[in-house]
């Protein structure tokens, strides 16, 4: 948990690299990382935003949402669906 909180973007990029190869290259930046309260208690949900270059090949990243790799399961949720292909 400490490693994940310390640098969540890096861990998520690693997940992306494994679950949706090539898409991490489309990532431009990330921000807004927050530790939030969840159903499991305080500080149990990590949320952040990634900005990607618009590209049709982002689709596999969205469909990989919810898959698990190395004990990490990431859910992807576009801020604006109309921008996605």
């Amino acid at each position: 948990m400490k490693k994940l909180v310390a640098n969540p973007a890096v861990r998520v990029l690693q997940w992306m690299h494994e679950m949706s190869p090539g898409r991490h290259a489309l990532a431009k930046d990330s921000w807004g990382w927050e530790l939030q309260s969840g159903a499991a208690g305080p500080n149990t949900v990590i949320r952040g935003l990634f900005r990607f270059k618009q590209d049709p090949s982002l689709e596999p990243l969205l469909t990989a949402s919810g898959r698990s790799h190395n004990g990490m399961r990431a859910y992807w949720d576009p801020v604006n669906w109309e921008q996605t292909q």
Binding site: V12, G38, T44, L49, F50, A74
Partner: peptide
């Protein structure tokens, strides 16, 4: 495009 990621 901006995509939110959630880890629970």
């Amino acid at each position: 495009t901006v995509i939110r990621v959630t880890l629970d």
